[in-house]
Design a protein around this nucleic acid. Structure first.
Lengths: 334, 334
DNA sequence: CTGAAAGCGCTAACAG
DNA sequence: CTGTTAGCGCTTTCAG
């Protein structure tokens, strides 16, 4: 086995508790003994057992990060920043993927529950009840979902989606469609609400095509609905859906942006690479990962015993690129 | 606190050790008592403490996964599959990102060391010595690097890179450049070796441009070197570098594939989305994640006490798309 | 087959 | 300021 606190104690000629203090409460120990202990510890290559410490203190210094799909480009920036941020707080991150499956989400939460100090749920698909239930056992921070008595990090998608519809309106589109992702997605609901509000405000016609999977395939699947609606401008659930949509539209003879304008959501690099380069609503993924971890750790280690739940709202913006243009005067193909 | 084994024991009218057995060694317990205990346990909502179990058994049932850059599209498929695979084995995965920094890698390995049963290192940048050192403390599986006394999962990049150079040669390119990523990258070395071998074999001239960061910016940075070399066909370290290269070449008036042909490596969806769509060497990321976890768990739980190190070699293939074409007869711009 | 007891490595009162 | 003494929740001998 590895070298333990006991070995250090023996080698330094002190009791284990002194070693423990020297390590985790330095001010409670004579500076000379402390230095001696510390030196012995490093000489021996002592590394504290995270596990033993967790057992006594009840703090694992681990957090769970649950996302829908690691391979969806929306998530990696969040994972990356969350993990980096956790590290500076002295925490490690378990990452798990639910494959867009609400049941997997619940199960995962439960396996995590006993071995983390808190959980970050990104774009959760689970029911409020399920989330509330874990919320009673340990701190949970939600990203892109609001729920009573829980901290959350929100991206101001309403603003972004409103801007997207406004942009389409400015271009001259009078009939707009929104393609929504999975049923029950909080973000989807926000996009829809904002789109409807802006459309009503400007006297634009708005149709909803939903639900489709939040993937490029989902975008392809939405093509008939979009074409049938007769809309000339589309706001898609995310960049992947937008990309699939553009591809599917092309296959049906409708060019983007000549015949139909498409706006994505995320500003993942997928959208930047796509041709036409995607007009999209930029979502602050990296900032969200950081903010979520900060909120979670604040909930785990309340600075002054206060158990407040906080909300961080992050801004979004519209990035206009090449997938949007004024509507075509000519009748649409087919 | 949560319900413990003690609570279950009391409620079931047996000793804690019996509960423990009923849970983790069912065959050692009378089937009637076992069922009673199990029922009480579920009724009480008992969940074993991962931490306590880890302390006694010395197994955390956690593994670490260290990658260079979570946001680099090469990694997410690996993370996703590794994490899923670990779960079916009853393990959880810590994911950490070194930001392409060898020192961060070493530090991370050390913080992980005491709280995981093993580590998967993907495309490690660290020194052999550093890796060997941890390898003495706990099982380490390497992805895309070979090191004595360690299991590893290799992608047959030699084959892929050879095919890439061969493809360029078939197209009629007589002068080829390879753009390599970070110094010390194992994969980079393999690409170079394979490219040199194939070039020699076919009597092609080969130049090396290196090192550059393994990012799109790195690709842009490689443009002068490529242009100076006079090569008409380029094999890039990865898709991101290829994409940056194409962009940078365009900015200097060299069109791809009209003036220069470019081959990427990875087959990330970045390459599929890029225009021109990237000709690339497909790297089996998902399969590698799975294989690495399998090898690691095999090392953690040797089936028969044998401490063998194994090697899994995964195939690669060349995917020809639109970024390669026969060389231009006209002199190159500038 | 089941109970008793020891102990994993560490922290946290409590004395002194 | 430092040593003693209990555990944290669980597994694992060792008896019976």
């Amino acid at each position: 086995m590895a070298v333990t606190i006991k070995d250090v104690a023996r080698a330094a000629g002190v009791h284990v508790s002194t070693v423990s203090r020297a390590l985790s409460a330095p001010h409670l120990v004579n500076s000379l003994t402390r230095e001696r202990v510390l030196k012995v510890a490093t000489d021996l290559g002592y590394r504290p057992s995270h596990t033993a410490r967790a057992l006594t203190t009840g703090r694992t210094h681990n957090v769970g990060l649950i996302v829908a799909d690691i391979a969806n480009p929306f998530f990696p920036p969040i994972i990356k920043s969350a993990q980096a941020r956790a590290r500076v707080h002295g925490y490690h991150v378990f990452v798990a993927d639910t494959d867009e499956n609400p049941r997997a989400e619940e199960e995962l939460i439960h396996t995590f529950a006993r071995q983390v100090d808190g959980i970050v749920l990104v774009s959760p698909r689970g029911t409020n009840k399920a989330i509330t239930r874990v919320g009673e056992e340990l701190p949970v921070v939600l990203v892109n979902r609001r729920l009573a008595r829980h901290s959350s990090v929100l991206m101001d998608i309403e603003h972004g989606a409103g801007r997207a519809v406004g942009h389409l309106g400015d271009l001259g589109h009078a009939h707009i469609a929104v393609v929504l992702g999975p049923r029950g997605s909080w973000t989807g609901g926000r996009i829809r609400a904002a789109a409807e509000a802006t459309a009503a405000d400007r006297g634009l016609r708005l149709d909803v095509v939903a639900p489709v999977p939040p993937t490029a395939e989902g975008g392809v699947a939405a093509v008939p609905g979009v074409l049938d609606s007769g809309a000339t401008g589309v706001v898609a659930y995310n960049d992947l859906v937008a990309i699939g949509l553009i591809e599917g539209l092309a296959a049906r003879g409708a060019a983007v942006p000549a015949d139909v304008s498409v706006v994505g959501v995320d500003d993942s690099f997928a959208g930047r690479l796509n041709r036409p380069r995607l007009t999209t609503v930029a979502m602050p993924g990296a900032a969200a990962g950081r903010a979520a971890v900060d909120l979670l750790i604040q909930a785990i280690e309340p600075p002054d015993g206060s158990l407040t739940t906080a909300e961080t709202m992050l801004g979004t913006s519209l990035i206009v690129r090449d997938s949007t243009a004024p509507p075509n005067r000519r009748p649409r193909p087919e």
